[in-house]
Amino acid sequence: MAGVISAGAAEALEAWLAARRALRGAAPNTEAAYRADVAGFLGFLAEHHGGPQGRTALARAGLSDIRAWLARGRAEGAGSRTLARRLSAVKSFYRWLAETDGFDASAILAARAPRHAARLPRPLAEDAARDMLETVGHQHAEPWIAARDTAVVTLLYGCGLRISEALALRLRDWPAGETLRIAGKGGKTRLVPLLPAARQAVEAYLDLCPHPATADSPIFRGARGGPLNPRLVQKATARARAQLGLPPSATPHALRHSFATHLLAAGGDLRAIQELLGHASLSTTQGYTAVDTTRLLEVYEAAHPKAGRRAG
């Protein structure tokens, strides 16, 4: 159970929240979360040190207090993201308190949040991915919009594009050849093979699209002719997965994830997949592809010169 917060500490907390409101106009729910997070730390300090900690005592809190508090939260079942959020609130409070009361809070401000693994979407099974591509096209009564949604998700799964990359395509980008030039993150461009199925899906949509276009027009258009909002693609896939009985993880981004996973499972080279996805590092691609350790070892044994000599 948390200790009792001193009147001085409670006063400091309310003054900090008032300063935040004046500067940023935080929403009530946000303010309540900040209050709870910082009050939890102040209560922990009181318990940890055997009694309420006045405003002067708060200035003596250090890294060991932060570590003990985070360890308590972990033991109580708080996840890494929750602990990171709590620490961010406490740092913000101490930054204000140090400026107001004139002490050095660098020890607390230097504390690092626990690392958390990025949550990646689960890949779809191959038959589920094919069913998704087919079913998305049945979610809208307007033929050209149905064809549009099918074309977008076919690019995600067939070419491994991010949804933002697909929706950023302009008509001038549409190739006459067998590759598609993609502007990825950080302004980096890459070439990806354009499968016949993906080409056919996009061209079927373009044949039906009623909006006039120039070379600078986006390929994928909303109902009124403007750039397509990604939320509309997400809604179409949500309806399709409900129809197919797929889990909530079957999102547009999961189709890109499935592209990488299925390609590697079929024997694709990890570095080639890295290039296709536009990842800056190979480690990102390894984390992105949902394959078991046995499959990765098979790729290693087949590709690494020393491993090959040992096997021979």
Rank of each mutant, 00 (worst) to 15 (best):
A242K: 13
G79F: 02
L270A: 09
L156C: 03
H116P: 00
A272W: 03
F41C: 03
L156P: 00
K306L: 15
A201C: 10
L255N: 11
R81Y: 05
S92Y: 00
T284Y: 01
A113W: 05
R181I: 15
H257I: 03
R172H: 12
R309Q: 12
T189M: 04
A215D: 14
W144P: 01
G312M: 03
A311H: 11
L232F: 14
A98I: 08
L133Y: 08
S258H: 00
P175W: 13
R60P: 01
P305M: 07
A146E: 02
L263P: 02
G77Q: 08
A250F: 10
N229I: 10
Q274G: 02
A111S: 14
G267N: 13
K306R: 15
L58R: 09
L109A: 02
G79C: 06
G268T: 02
A57G: 15
R24Q: 12
P230W: 14
L296D: 04
A71Q: 11
A15R: 15
A242P: 00
D37N: 05
R181T: 15
R181Y: 03
G184I: 14
S258P: 00
A2N: 12
A36G: 01
R24F: 12
T30M: 01
P210E: 11
F44Y: 12
R271I: 02
A213V: 15
A19L: 06
D292I: 00
A118T: 12
A78H: 06
L42V: 03
P193F: 08
E11W: 00
G79A: 13
V90F: 06
S283L: 06
L180S: 12
S164N: 11
R86G: 01
D269H: 08
L120M: 03
A9T: 07
A32K: 12
A147Y: 04
V38S: 04
T261V: 10
D37I: 03
A46E: 05
V4Y: 00
E142H: 00
P305E: 07
C159F: 01
A236K: 09
V153A: 08
A125D: 15
I182K: 08
Y94E: 07
E298V: 03
T251A: 06
Y34I: 02
L133N: 07
P230Q: 15
E142I: 09
P52V: 10
R60T: 15
Y157R: 00
Y94S: 05
R199E: 08
Q274K: 12
A46W: 06
S281D: 15
A250Y: 09
G77C: 08
A290P: 00
V202G: 03
T56Y: 07
A105Y: 04
D173L: 12
T150A: 13
G184Q: 13
H48W: 13
